[in-house]
Write a protein that binds this DNA or RNA. Structure first.
Lengths: 342, 342
DNA sequence: CTGAAAGCGCTTACAG
DNA sequence: CTGAAAGCGCTTACAG
């Protein structure tokens, strides 16, 4: 068999006895062809297994039908956080329905990340990007704004410049958690927070401080970390070595919470008897350990899908806004209980 | 400020006083321009921040400068396995040096996966693809072959049809592990394997059976699972409920090993006293738990980089071959010890 | 070494 | 409703 040239709209036009323009209109659901002609064209396209050349389409329509996602975390940490893969699968659910592709890039620094955006936009590789890990004073925002690259922030809702965002109410979730621990009888609680310059860390820290003060907690400190297990373990060790150690700890991710559980066991403390543990971003990991971890969870794929829809709307120049996803909900499991009387 | 049109080679040509063709040659390092002209063109391109339109380049060069990766795992499982993110970061290290992009797609079924390949290739979205999770009788192989879509298999080295592959010697790693457990004094060991229709599962199962027989193990059974924590826990419970329970278990991934550790603790068995645990695909997760897990690890980013290089060579029509990556190496930690005398 | 031109496969005004 | 044609921004033979 001779290697066949891939079919083009010219082939379809020839077989249907119409112009290439008519084929284009028919294929794209545009007006300009009669229903009968459209049917015929569609049937031929289907029959010969036609797929439009994305480069040709991109070149003439000035649209790439791809969106970009740059992830700036060390591979070591990226891999063990289920968050991103779940987010990605939600994003793709939305994209593939419209034949959009996702271009992914792992970057090391914010300079690299910004360079990737410039290159992608300059090359017309993507029609827009999704931004993660919003910072309090985020240098990406002005760059994106200047570039006029359509972008949606996953996070916020403040500090997003002119960009739309999708966000969930972390403060509310944290208040719910502190109230839950207070109701169990905890008076000394701590929090192992994520990277301190991330906006959502700031929001959570503030909510934690406010809620614990309001509820009459005698101590309520936040220790910063980088989401890695090692840092989570180190922070836990420091907290538990204190003579007035906390009876409950809230962790900003699942990985650190699991590391914290390991440290407690290593130090001979019973969970939940001596220490209650709450993990943010519930994931299957939380149910792998013993006891299973009480966790704050949300539908991350739905969050990603919302972000993708918002970005697609921005790309289509539809009026967009910032959207609030559902807040994280607390699922009590075996790692939380009233504190044992000293 | 007026929104500026993005610069094209025509702009550069005009400013340099040469033809577009000369600009193209200069930019792509082709012969056909004098060193002085090339310098001048490059300087102008740099100055005005020129990036070639990827669609135009793709259309005329019939190359997309992107490769595709379709991942077929439920989002739930994909997220908690560090393997893929580490693989991806290794792949990208190789791609970004050559300005190649990675197009990622999460799929649910093999039919969807094959449909994605057809569409990508039909649309000329990608120049080649990387294939994971090779099966014993893999329907993707003949499709890719027929499509003439350049592809490299991550896995093998057998059952890859005409495709090149990168692989590591799982059998050797498993033999090393069984020998290690035997040297510690274990006589009854078990294995919780991955999906049974994956080729590497088959290879590991065979090696496990052979090695344990050769070393005089009285019992050495493999239980199949799907890599999820729930299945790992269930398999562990079943194995440990046996009156002649194993004193050591090898798990095909980290997640199941951690779940198994949880089950042992739940059943009141000491690890490593009553049960030794070995995890495949060492990851930071293995050091999160207490005791830390003895694990088989390899440099996954390097594995991904090798795969990317091989695919790029295949795309460039360079002669390619299958490459063997380093085998997994065993890192003993706290979860393995001589079995306690019953 | 350089220029002029065709062509990649689409989309989209513009005429009929 | 349909056709003929220009144009998107590159690459690449083909002449000079």
């Amino acid at each position: 068999m001779i290697a066949m040239k891939r079919p083009t709209i010219a082939d379809i036009a020839q077989r249907a006895g119409v112009s290439k323009g008519a084929v284009s209109y028919a294929l794209n659901g545009q007006p300009g062809v009669s229903p009968a002609t459209r049917q015929r064209i569609l049937a031929i396209a289907e029959e010969i297994g036609f797929n439009p050349n994305s480069a040709a389409r991109a070149l003439s329509a000035a649209t790439s039908n791809a969106i970009g996602l740059a992830l700036r975390r060390p591979a070591r940490i990226l891999g063990i956080e289920p968050f991103f893969m779940e987010l990605i699968s939600g994003v793709e659910g939305e994209l593939s329905a419209r034949s959009y592709a996702l271009t992914l890039q792992v970057v090391a620094t914010v300079e690299d990340e910004v360079a990737v955006y410039r290159r992608w936009w300059g090359e017309r590789r993507v029609d827009g990007v999704l931004i993660c890990d919003l910072r309090v004073d985020d240098e990406r925002i002005p760059v994106l704004d200047k570039l006029q690259l359509p972008a949606v922030v996953i996070g916020g809702p403040t500090h997003t410049g002119n960009l739309s965002s999708v966000w969930s109410d972390d403060a509310a979730a944290l208040v719910e958690t502190v109230e839950y621990l207070a109701a169990l009888g905890h008076r000394r609680i701590a929090r192992v927070g994520g990277l301190p310059d991330l906006l959502h860390t700031e929001i959570r820290s503030q909510a934690f401080a406010d809620a614990s003060k309001r509820l009459g907690m005698t101590e309520a400190i936040t220790v910063s970390s980088d989401y890695s297990g090692e840092e989570g373990a180190r922070a836990t060790r420091r907290l538990l070595s204190n003579s007035r150690r906390p009876t409950g700890i809230i962790y900003d991710n699942d990985v650190m919470a699991i590391a914290g559980l390991g440290v407690a066991q290593e130090m001979g403390l019973a969970v939940p008897g001596d220490l209650s543990i709450v993990a943010w971003d519930d994931s299957p990991l939380c149910q792998l350990v013993h006891p299973a971890l009480t966790a704050l969870g949300r539908d991350i794929p739905a969050y990603g899908a919302l972000a993708a829809r918002t970005l697609l709307a921005a790309i289509a120049h539809e009026p967009t806004a910032s959207f609030q996803a559902e807040p994280s909900r607390l699922t009590p499991r075996g790692s939380t209980a009233p504190p044992r009387r000293a």
